[in-house]
Simulated assay, not measured.
Amino acid sequence: MTNITLQVEGMSCNHCVNSIEGAVKGLGASAKVDLSAKSVTVSYDESKISLEAIKETIEDQGYDVV
């Protein structure tokens, strides 16, 4: 498993947390959102999911991966 922390702009509430964590889980990965740090830590299997797919999924939820 690979772990990476992404800086994500636009998150402000529990809905944001649930939206991102749920979307990433749908890819087969796990995510932990830290609102105060404006970050998302993702754990994923590189042989099954690309980092680009994870970033796109988060952006599709309306947030900006910086």
Rank of each mutant, 00 (worst) to 15 (best):
S50Q: 01
G62V: 02
S39T: 14
V42F: 03
A31L: 06
T57F: 01
N14A: 15
V40A: 01
K32L: 11
D60A: 15
Y44I: 03
S30G: 01
S19T: 12
A37V: 11
S19K: 14
L51I: 04
V24C: 00
N18W: 12
A37Q: 15
S19L: 11
C16D: 07
V17T: 09
A37G: 12
K25R: 14
G22L: 03
K32I: 13
T57G: 00
K48P: 03
D34H: 08
E56Y: 08
V65C: 05
L27P: 09
V65E: 13
A37H: 10
I49S: 06
E56P: 07
K38R: 14
G22D: 12
K55L: 05
I20Q: 06
C16F: 09
G26K: 12
S43A: 15
D45F: 01
H15P: 12
Y63D: 09
D64Q: 14
A31K: 03
G26Q: 09
I58G: 05
G22C: 08
T57Y: 06
L51Y: 00
T41W: 03
G22V: 04
I58M: 10
L27I: 04
S19E: 09
K55I: 15
A23L: 07
I54M: 08
S43F: 00
A23R: 09
A23W: 07
N18M: 05
E59W: 03
I20D: 01
K55V: 14
G22W: 05
I49N: 03
S30P: 05
G28E: 02
A53C: 01
Q61K: 13
G62L: 03
I49T: 01
G28H: 03
S50W: 05
D60Q: 15
D60K: 13
K48T: 06
V65T: 07
Q61D: 12
E21G: 07
D60R: 14
S30T: 13
K48Q: 14
K38G: 13
A31E: 02
V33I: 10
S36M: 15
S30E: 12
K55P: 05
A29F: 01
D45K: 02
C13F: 03
V24I: 06
L27K: 09
V65Y: 10
T41H: 04
T41G: 04
V24K: 02
V33F: 09
A29D: 04
C13I: 13
T57W: 03
K38C: 13
I49R: 06
D64S: 13
H15T: 14
G26F: 08
H15A: 12
D60W: 06
S50Y: 08
